[in-house]
């Protein structure tokens, strides 16, 4: 029983950073912006979150600054793709190359090349009084760091936004058919920029979560493909808030499972278990990805004069 409990606990912990990054992509793609630069945005967010927390001692300030730097870096992508109508993939890739390298560079500049591990104090968990004492579910859902609560709250807000509000409907129209949206007076370009601000901020938070709530150090490559798994999660989740949540929990579960299997196995090289999340991603994508879906004008540049 404890094995299963700890497995599920780890699932939630693993799923949360993915969830932030996948929600970032959801907001981006709903406005037609395919951003494959999540990995890079999360990397720079992770470093800045760590650094700010190391200097000030405040995990909250670290996460806030992680969000800010995510926005700043993502504005490169936004300006190139929205204002200059450049290719989304090219600029997403550029950020994936540029941002992680910048993160490592800043780390080296600040801490030097020494090998001693810099550590910070992780964000403390806060139990929700009463609820946390429910057997099994208490620990799983109501005795976590505030960031976990924020992530799940964000899923609910996202569902309401896209399904119940007028603003959400207009936002979705931009990703589906920007020309039609424009003829109805919806500010297409403004919404596209807004989507990039949201995407940058949430990816940055996802990255900062890794260093301030998950492991207490920064190491190069600590995002470890989560940016790409998050991309898959959006497709798996059929571009909806609820779907993305389930997808992230699934990938989080795979991740948690592989760690536990590594510990308990003899004779099987641990690398095989490490592959599980990535293999799961490939399997899911080849099953689900074949079906066409997603916003129709996703990834297409929008030019106002073109009709």
């Amino acid at each position: 029983m404890t094995w299963i409990t700890s497995l599920l606990l780890a699932t939630v912990r693993m799923a949360v950073p993915l969830l932030f990054i996948a929600l970032a992509e959801l907001y981006s793609e709903r406005a037609g912006m395919v951003n494959i630069g999540l990995e890079g945005l999360a990397a720079i967010g992770s470093l800045v979150g760590f650094l700010v927390c190391y200097i000030t001692g405040s995990t909250w300030l670290g996460i806030l600054c992680g969000a800010l730097v995510g926005v700043v870096v993502n504005m490169i992508y936004a300006y190139a793709t929205i204002s200059l109508c450049a290719d989304h993939i090219v600029y997403g890739m550029a950020i994936n190359i540029f941002a992680p390298a910048l993160a490592s560079f800043i780390y080296r500049v600040y801490f030097g090349t020494g090998s001693d591990l810099k550590q910070i104090e992780l964000m403390a968990g806060i139990g929700i009084p009463g609820l946390k004492n429910i057997p099994f579910f208490g620990d799983l859902l109501f005795n976590q760091t505030p960031m976990v609560y924020i992530a799940f709250l964000l899923v609910i807000v996202t569902c309401i936004f896209f399904n119940k509000t007028r603003a959400g409907l207009n936002y979705k129209a931009v990703g589906e058919h920007p020309q039609a949206a424009a003829t109805l007076g919806i500010p297409v370009v403004r919404i596209k920029y807004l989507s990039c601000v949201l995407c940058g901020a949430l990816s940055g938070i996802g990255g900062a979560y890794l260093t301030t709530c998950y492991s207490n150090t920064y190491s190069q490559g600590n995002v470890a493909g989560r940016g790409f798994i998050a991309l898959a999660a959006v497709i798996f989740g059929r571009w909806t808030g609820g779907g993305v949540l389930l997808a992230c929990l699934f990938f989080g579960f795979c991740d948690a499972l592989q760690i536990r299997l590594q510990v308990g196995s003899f004779g099987v090289p641990y690398q095989f278990f490490q592959m599980i999340p990535y293999v799961a991603t490939i399997v899911v994508l080849s099953v689900i990805g074949a079906k066409k879906g997603g916003p129709q004008a996703n990834g297409k540049p929008y030019r106002r004069e073109q009709r």
């Binding site: 409907l169 979705k172 129209a173 589906e176 058919h177 020309q179 039609a180 949206a181 003829t183 916003p295 129709q296």
Partner: peptide
């Protein structure tokens, strides 16, 4: 060419 969002 109609200006309708097909997915809605």
């Amino acid at each position: 060419h109609f200006m309708l969002v097909e997915a809605m």
